[in-house]
Structures are given as structure tokens and as C-alpha cells.
Amino acid sequence: MSSIPEYMTKKHRECDEFFSEAEAAVADKDWSLALAKWQLFASELTEHLAQEEETLFPQFEQATGMTSGPTQVMRMEHQQMRALVQSLDNALAAKDKDEYLGLSETLMVMMQQHNMKEEMMLYPMMAQHLTDGEQLIEGFKANEAV
């Protein structure tokens, strides 16, 4: 059984890996590899954000009564990340290397800042307030296996 901080942090690292592989492929102008890795990243990210926004955040808000607190900021940052992902999709489709690398540097830095806030503050707070945290994670894992 893994805790919320353990599992969710591991997911951040997995996203970083796919992201870096896609970026390296773009730098080498290996567009087919870049697309494959980018799609892996995008689907990992979509799933991760959904786990937070649809399950963890509402549960946390319910448990603490903090509806306009940190989870609200995280939701807004997710929205910004999605916008950058969209721009990266376009740069990849246009095979525009410089544009892609400028955007990927930007998304990378935004994600790292965002992750740090979640890993250092939000996930530990969740582990503290959500008594069924480990069951929730088991649920995520079961969905992954499907």
C-alpha cells in the first residue's frame, strides 16, 4: 500500500521522464519518437490531473472545509499547464523545434514549481486529513491496471 505523497510524487517523476525523453527527441529532430513520448507524457499528465481534481481535491476540501485554499490555486495552475500543453501540441504538429524547446523549458519550470508546492505542502496535508488515503491510491492503481 502506498501513501498519497509516495504515489503522487512517483507519478510526478514518471511524467518528468516522458517529458524529458520527448524534449530530447525534439532537440534531435526525431519527430516520430518525439510524438510517441509526448503522447505518453500527455496521457500520464491528464490522468494525474484528473486524479487530483476529481478525487483528491474534493475529498480534501470536504475533510478540511478549505474550498478556496491551496487546492483552488493548484486547479488554476493546472489550467495554465493545460494551455501550455496545447501550445506544445501545436509546436510539435508544426515541427517547430525552437518554439517547442522554448515552450517545453517553460512548462518544465512551471511543473517543477507546481510539484514542489504539492509535494512539500499539499500531499503531506492530504495524508494528514484523509483517513482513507491509501484506499484512494489503491483505487487509482486498479484503474491504471485496466
Binding site: 488554476m76 495554465q80 525552437d98 524547446l101 522554448g102 523549458e105 519550470v109 514549481q113
Partner: peptide, 27 residues
């Protein structure tokens, strides 16, 4: 570039539509 971007990005948390104005880091 990191500071410039982060400060502008924080401003756009409230006004999401303004995100379109922010250049990427290499700019």
C-alpha cells in the same frame, strides 16, 4: 527568464485569458 515568467504567470492565475500575452522562457 524564470523570474520574469513566474511573476507574470502568477498574475494570470486570476485572469487566465491574459496567459496568451506571456512569451515562453526562451523569448
Amino acid at each position: 527568464p524564470f523570474l520574469s515568467y513566474t511573476h507574470l504567470q502568477q498574475r494570470c492565475l486570476v485572469d487566465f485569458s491574459a496567459m496568451q500575452f506571456i512569451p515562453h522562457m526562451h523569448e
